[in-house]
Design a protein around this nucleic acid. Structure first.
Lengths: 228, 228
DNA sequence: CGTTGAATTGATTTAAGTCAATCGACGTGG
DNA sequence: CCACGTCGATTGACTTAAATCAATTCAACG
């Protein structure tokens, strides 16, 4: 477990089109990738824990990672879920090098590790790179706040409907048939629901033109969903 | 309303010790303040709305501002509350110059306005300034995620107890008597509660060594609060 | 084919929202 | 100076959304 791998061509491709590096000039990308290590973990491996000293951030090459906090009673609450091309763990670089959340692989994942020391240097020397990092933080911040508002304004079926519509839109093409990117239990956590509540929300949505078979989703009537 | 004021000495002092400028070198502070306009608004004035084009961010000189989103039914959910020395509205600078939330003065406020165009230029030229902005985003991100976790893990009385303990700690000195910085209805919104729920939470906390008289709070037994 | 973990379904409990009435403080104007 | 009106806070009764607990069912995989 956690064995380092050689960075192959496919890895490099994904990194180049990741949130971190997409749009940056070739020479800068090359500099940013200097010293980066690719490795993979098994499902459920913990990548870092709240309170630990942070020394690097990560870009996901494959799989999904969840960010969460643990309550006194041991219950866990997810605050974000990240997928291929996304960056996580960068926040602590600006907050005294301590992680404030836990991160766990939700399934087998492949990650690229970027050292804070190098990245700080690069940010200092290359405004474009600094801007890329800052833009990621802005997106994460916007997501997190949207999450707060979503939790407080919408019921479980509404949150699920919104999520499905987002997925639909993200998929780009007007295809109203797609596959959930990860397990329902993880989705439930992301939406702040117990798995049972997600299940019930899905079965309620069936009456609004949504078909569900395992992870496959088909949306018959997007308008009806928006009205939920 | 919204009348521009001359930036006085006191304003400058607050700005210098704000999250934006604290720790920056004098010349840089001077540059950052070039072109900044100070103005004040009445309670409940809306500073910007979701979807509007964003052209500047703000530093609060006095008063409190809430950031919120509005649901279909018109209900409002707060995602953050900012006070003196804090920065808000900077997020859109990295997200296509559109606000994604609404901002409203919770009371009469005085603000300093910083234009995106100038600030972007300054970030490009001064890594220290870019870092200051990024650090703010990191803190906001951390706060927002902590909020999500807090909402999902804790009950109303627990959230209120946590908030009181934070205030207590923020106050620095071991003084266990202090004043709520703003109205209870605003606090309720910040904590994601209906005002009635906050009220009930307070009355429950009275049985755990908390005295409340108007906005004045006295904590008899911090340990008991932590155990809630 | 059987085992394991995920997902669903049902019954029940619980936290918090809603609605409505009352109380209190404060400021205005008679 | 007192009466009134406004607004925020509190309290109580009720409703509702979602968590919890428990029992199956389902699906994937060896």
């Amino acid at each position: 477990m956690n064995k380092a791998l050689r960075m192959n061509f496919r890895d490099k491709e994904i990194l180049q089109s990741s949130k971190l590096l997409a749009g940056l000039d070739g020479a800068l990308v090359k500099r940013a990738l200097d010293g980066v290590v690719v490795f993979s973990t098994e499902a459920r491996d913990v990548l870092f824990r709240e309170g630990e000293t942070a020394v690097c951030f990560y870009v996901i090459l494959s799989g999904y990672v969840r960010l969460y906090r643990i309550g006194h009673d041991g219950k866990e609450a997810d605050t974000a879920v990240f997928g291929p091309g996304e960056v996580f763990g960068q926040c602590a670089m600006f907050l005294g090098d301590r992680h404030t959340f836990n991160a766990q692989a939700a399934e087998p994942v492949t990650l690229a590790r970027f050292d804070y020391a190098r990245m700080r240097q690069l940010m200092r020397e290359e405004p474009d790179f600094a801007m890329a990092i800052t833009r990621i933080m802005a997106q994460h911040l916007d997501d997190a706040r949207a999450n707060v508002a979503n939790d407080r304004l919408h019921t479980a079926p509404q949150r699920v409907a919104n999520y499905l519509l987002e997925l639909c839109a993200a998929h780009g093409n007007g295809s109203d048939t797609f596959r959930l990117p990860y397990q329902k239990s993880l989705l439930a956590g992301k939406l702040g629901l117990a798995p049972e509540a997600l299940s019930r929300a899905f079965s309620l949505l069936k009456r609004s033109g949504v078909s569900i078979r395992g992870r496959m989703i088909h949306i018959h009537d997007a308008e009806a969903l928006k009205r939920i």
